[in-house]
Design a protein around this nucleic acid. Structure first.
Lengths: 248, 248
DNA sequence: GAATTTTATGACAACACGTCAACAATTGAC
DNA sequence: GTCAATTGTTGACGTGTTGTCATAAAATTC
């Protein structure tokens, strides 16, 4: 029994080691550049052993994505846990998104890898469920704030959307902007100098469009975001460093 | 001179043939599944000849993406060319996005391929510029409507954004939702039953948030979208069929 | 019709994933 | 302490990929 758990621990330690080695390769070289031989070389184990832990390359990437999505989820948890009205808490989630965009670019790259044909087909169900679970938790956090806003009377009209569908819009705009920012090499060349600020403005306008109380002009919105960041940024950094430490 | 242009024509014909063969493979099998040997086999030429036209696999994909982005651009042109107020024309662009999401899923897949690390690094500059050019044109179409709205007094306050940055928000929300719809296998499981409708509502609210005149409640917005689609859908289909014909 | 330039080819080198027979280490019974 | 049995590790190998390049074929020029 003790031996079994020791073995299990050893297994987990090695799985973590594989991910620790694979992550920087994936980030630097992309999915194609991530070579199993290279991973085997960099840790002191052979390829066969790696395949004892992960059935294929895709599952390694999925496991890395789970780590990154959990970072995002923990940032969200920090944001949602502040004591404030529903609109401010929603804005705090926006701050988490801004933080993730600015300071967790590597994690975003990993996340993006899995939004791709061929990754899902080859992997087994278990890691897929982990991803969905984490996605569902993130959604739950945000949808919870929407529900609270409704019950508090701060958000009256969803225009026929479910709370989750309302969240979907914010999810899409943040996720979309992050992808475009990363993969459109020359946004400034087509007139977009600060995508981050642009999305902040859009989120403000979107909240106003839904008449989520208290409505704010952009100046006030920015002031509140600054205040929120003063509180949240230390927490965000702490969460991120904690994860880095755990990962490395 | 005549001989030269004939040769050039022959070259172009063959380049098009390569793309014609490669496209369905890319769509069905993904970037990895697209094999140069397979392409060579399906057309009646050898691999070496293909490499005369495209330096590597990535450039083939980029060329395919240009085709798909041009389809999107032509849809946008159709939308922008209707005679109506600026907000309705903006909504017409939304209709184009809806059409692209619903009926051009293959083209979207191709577009998504290029938003990926490793594609850009390996290709030369020329095809990259084609992409950026097309991207810039799409941006120009939409930003033109924003500028018109401003000059007509239908859009008073951009909250400090440039017209392009305003467009960026709509770009991001549409692009993001499309990616999430495609790659999150179980949106319904987390409460999102109609992502398309959700994004439509968000666009309406976003336009309202910017006080883009005339502001509309969602019911009216839906009615106008229905009317727009009556006019536009035939045009969209015509554009799409035209391209299919050109491609195949 | 021969010489030269241009073009097409597919065998080849380099490298990747994933497997598996052979080999090493650990365990546990006596 | 010994040795069989089980469990764990390995890296060469089969298959498949990209991209190259010497060679062969075709076209063009003279």
């Amino acid at each position: 029994m003790v031996a079994l758990t020791r073995k299990q621990k050893e297994m987990e330690r090695r799985a973590a080691e594989i991910l620790r080695v694979a992550r920087p390769i994936l980030i630097a070289e992309g999915f194609q550049g991530l070579s199993m031989d290279e991973v085997a070389l960099q840790m002191e184990y052979s390829k066969g052993t790696i395949y004892k832990h992960f059935h294929n390359k895709e599952e390694i990437v999925l496991a890395l994505a789970v780590q990154s999505m959990e970072l995002r989820r923990r940032l969200f948890e920090q944001s949602a846990s502040i004591v404030a009205g529903s609109r401010l808490r929603m804005m705090a989630l926006g701050a988490a998104c801004e933080f993730f965009t600015q300071h967790c670019t590597d994690d975003f790259l990993v996340e993006q890898c899995i939004r791709h044909q061929g990754i899902w087909e080859k992997s087994s169900e278990q890691p897929q469920n982990l991803i969905r679970q984490c996605e569902g938790q993130c959604m739950g956090i945000v949808a919870g704030i929407v529900r609270e806003a409704i019950s508090q009377g701060e958000l009256a009209d969803l225009a026929g959307l479910s709370p989750e569908e309302l969240v979907f819009g914010f999810w899409a705009i943040n996720y979309g902007s992050q992808i475009l920012t990363h993969s459109s090499p020359s946004l400034p060349a087509i007139g977009i100098n600060s995508p981050l600020n642009a999305i902040r403005v859009h989120c403000c306008k979107l909240l106003n469009g839904f008449a989520w109380q208290p409505t704010m002009m952009i100046e006030e919105y920015n002031q509140e975001m600054t205040k929120l960041n003063e509180t949240l940024l230390p927490k965000f950094w702490s969460v991120k460093n904690q994860q880095s430490q755990y990962i490395n």
